[in-house]
Structure formats: structure tokens, C-alpha cells
Design a protein around this nucleic acid. Structure first.
Lengths: 217, 217
DNA sequence: GGAGTTCTTGACCGTGCGGTCCACCATAAG
DNA sequence: CTTATGGTGGACCGCACGGTCAAGAACTCC
């Protein structure tokens, strides 16, 4: 039963009110990035609302009005992160002139940071899966979906490499899974404080064994 | 400057008082195991003292008197866990008649659990490193030390395999690092909800590429 | 049994948490 | 200008957290 409605139906996302009022004083994407970095550094549980207010520069009221509670804000930041990551992955896999090199870069990418600072942070999605995967089915499902997509992207690149004469005889999806697992393993070893040189050597060693180059044969 | 001391010096760990009084009503190892499982399932921050009291059956006072605060109790449980793990690793690597098979088992071990329940929990040390590595230097240092020890144990097994005619030409330590990274990667993929069959296939695929068997050549 | 010591229990405490609310502000439309 | 509307910031709330403490129970030694 509906009564006469004088208000705009705001249940539809991004619908604008009939009359504009005070506009937002912040950029949503900037806030999400700041919040993402905070969760990335400290984890979900160890990040307090005060932390989020500090890094975003917003008050509690604004944060809650714009994003809902802490968990929803976290999920928004996490989705934003994985979207960006997949964008980068797509670009990296597509841009390399030789697909085999792109796949190699996959394994060495986690160590790219010369300072090692980024290496210590790991991957936000991986960290979140570890911390919340058991307790939050939504985070787990998101992780599962995301890694399946990554696998598909990598498998496409493997297929391209095969079109270029490399990796003959491999099952693209199986190899993609092995590469993704290896990448996550390298990423993790970086978090344990392994020095950059050793990490790089390990990444190259894995790349050499999983992605043999027979062009010189 | 010391005054006359009538009390026993309890700063030395495990020193017993001169006069026995009321004995403990709990077994320390059992409590540590219960506490470890709780931290394992929920993570450090998400585990409350109430949880710890519930799973251990002890009151707050007893817990604090026996182990100190929450963090120290966690560190005790973590050390106990890694000690046990290294015990199992030593045994597994030594018992296999063929060293190459032992190394293969390393990669498949994370998927051994038929129910998949254990697979979802991952490894307590890995979880803890992800959650606390950035914030707690002691946890990070412990993780680093532990994985270095694991690397050494695996490298020994690689050397044994070479003595048995396998893995000719590989650098034991480098291969050990690659194997450990791959294992952690598989372990992590299991946490993302990947089904057991796919996980097993990935583990076998990695094992086949990192640990080739040329005995039939 | 009494004395001395340790362990246990649970009430208690201060703090910081996540979350709500409301008075005020900035803007757009009339 | 006035008015309506949504944004903002901070006061405020109840709660659960980690941690403390004191009193009593359980035990050994004399």
C-alpha cells in the first residue's frame, strides 16, 4: 500500500534529488583510496573509526551517510581495489609485446618495489582473505570470484603465448592456476621479511621452471 | 641495590617455588592448543578474552597469572604451533623412503584434508603474519626465523634427493625457497575457497614442474 | 591442625569501540 | 531575500573490550 509520495525515491543508487542542496565536499574515490590504504596497513579489525576519520578527513556522520557502517565501507574499498587491480592486470598482460614476458612479470611484480615497503604490505585482497575469509562469507566469495577472474585473464595470456610459439602443450587454465598460486606464494614470502634479492631470485627461479623459454632451441 | 630476599626469584622461567602450594588444575599444553585453535579460526584481533576463557575453561585471573596478557598468550600459542609444525616437517621429510616423494608431499599436504575444513583455515603462522606482520615486529621476526628454518629443512631434503639421483643440478636452497613459496601459494589458494579437486591438480602441476622425475629416462 | 603459599573465581574498572543523532551549515530553487 | 534540502561535525550512547584485584579454595610442610 502506497501513500502519496512527495519525496524522491532514493533507493535507486545514484539517483539525484529533484532539488539540489549542499554538494559533497569530498571526492568519493579519494576517500576510498585513503580508507583502502588504512585497511591495507592495519587490517580490518585493527582499524578504528577514528583512524578512518583521520585518513579521510571526514566526520563520522559524513562517513556513515555516504558509505554505511564500517564493514560496508571496507567492502567498498576492497571492491574498488580489486577493480583497479584487474585493470592493471589486463593492461600489463595486453601491453607486453611478448606474452611470455608478461607472464614472467606476473611473478616478479610483487618484488618490483625497490624500497621493499610495498612488498611488506602484500596484497589487500590476500590480507583480507586471511583475516576475514573464515568469518565473512561475502569477503570469501569476493576473493573467490576475483581470483577466478585473474585465472581467466592469465589463461588468456597463456593462450596468446602459445599462439606465439611458447609454452607448447600446456593447459592454459592449469598453468594459470599454477602461476597465480606461485605469485601469491612469492607475495607472501615477501611479507615474512625475506630480503628483496632473495625474493627476486626465487621469483626468477619459479618463472624459469614454470615458464620455460625454448625460443633458443 | 638488593634488600634481603625472602621470596624465590621467579624471574627464571619454570623455576619451582621452594614450597609447593595449590597445584594447577589445568594442563598448559591443552590450554595452549585450545587457545591456538581459537586464534587460528578467528584471528588475533577478532578473538576476545571471553573467547579465550570459553575455549580454555579458565578464568581471566588464571589465564593472566599463567601466561600474561592476551598478546603474550598468543605468542606462546604461536610458538607452540610452529614448534609442532617443524616437528611434523622433520618427521615427514625424514620418513619418506624417497626424498623426492617427501618434497612432493610438501606441496600436496595443504590439500590433504578430505573435508576441506582444514584447508580453509590455512596455516596459523601465515594467517598471523598477514594480520600482524605490519604491526608487530616480534611476530614478523618469528615468522622470518621459522620460514628460514623450514627452508633449511627442505634444502636438506633436496640434497638427500640429489644423493638419490634426483633433481640433478639444482641449488638446494634456491629450490627449497621455490618449493616453500609454492606451498604457501597453494595453501593460500585453498583459503580462497578453491575446490579440493582443482587445488590438488594445481599442487600436482606445480610438483611436476618443480620436482621432475627423471628416473624413467 | 596451623601456617604459608599458590591457584582460582568473578566482581569490578576505565577506556575506546562502533554507531546514532541532531543542531548547524552550504547550496539551489523560487 | 526566503525556503527546502541534503551535507557536516561533534556530542553523545551503550557496550564489550582488555586488564586488575581481593578474597577464598586447595595444597604442602611443619
Amino acid at each position: 500500500m502506497r501513500s502519496t509520495i512527495s519525496m524522491v525515491d532514493r533507493t535507486v543508487k545514484n539517483s539525484y534529488p529533484v532539488r539540489m542542496a549542499r554538494p559533497r565536499s569530498f571526492d568519493e574515490k579519494q576517500v576510498l583510496n585513503a580508507v583502502r590504504d588504512q585497511f591495507w596497513d592495519a587490517g580490518y579489525a585493527a582499524t578504528s573509526l577514528e583512524d578512518l576519520m583521520r585518513v579521510s578527513g571526514l566526520g563520522k556522520g559524513s562517513l556513515y551517510a555516504a558509505f554505511g557502517d564500517k564493514r560496508q565501507l571496507f567492502l567498498r574499498a576492497l571492491r574498488s581495489y580489486t577493480d583497479d587491480s584487474h585493470g592493471h592486470l589486463r593492461k600489463a598482460l595486453a601491453e607486453a609485446p611478448r606474452a611470455l614476458d608478461a607472464l614472467r612479470m606476473l611473478l616478479e611484480a610483487p618484488v618490483d618495489d625497490p624500497t621493499g615497503a610495498g612488498t611488506r604490505r602484500g596484497c589487500l585482497l590476500a590480507n583480507s582473505t586471511c583475516e576475514l575469509g573464515n568469518a565473512d562469507p561475502e569477503v570469501l566469495a569476493h576473493a573467490h570470484r576475483t581470483y577466478e577472474t585473474s585465472t581467466a585473464l592469465i589463461a588468456d595470456c597463456v593462450a596468446r603465448a602459445q599462439g606465439e610459439g611458447d609454452l607448447a602443450g600446456a593447459d592454459p587454465i592449469a598453468l594459470a592456476r599454477a602461476l597465480l598460486a606461485a605469485q601469491q606464494g612469492i607475495l607472501f614470502m615477501g611479507r615474512t621479511g625475506l630480503d628483496t634479492a632473495t625474493l627476486t631470485a626465487t621469483a626468477r627461479s619459479l618463472a624459469a621452471q614454470l615458464l620455460p623459454d625454448h625460443s633458443g632451441d
